[in-house]
Amino acid sequence: MLPTAKLLQQQRQPLIRFLGKRTTPTKIDHSPVAHPAAPSNTLPNTFATYRQAAQQHGPLNTTLGSGTIASKSGASLGPIAAPQGAYFDRSELPNRYAKLEWTAAEIEAIESGGASTIA
């Protein structure tokens, strides 16, 4: 076994390796750095200042104050049931507000354009 192991150790290891199907890395740092072919290793300050100015009113730099809804937990905002006397849907309204059943006369009146009520 030993001579075989030694022979295997002597085998050339190619530097080329099959990389597999290319995939987009899961974590990419998009923060701007100098272009690899640029003569300078640093970006002008304007890159940072533009981004700061562009984001100051945008969602990235927005911090929510203590009084806003988003700063509170859902449970602390109370039950989600409609308050007394308010309803989310018409079907929840008391029966007196429910749609009445069509009568045969009403249907006939609609179909005859009202003529059946006169006759």
């Binding site: 701007p32 100098a34 272009h35 970006l43 890159f47 981004r51 562009a54």
Partner: peptide
Amino acid sequence: IIIDQEYRTKIP
């Protein structure tokens, strides 16, 4: 024109 590593100018 000055760009970063993703070809972006200062206006991304």
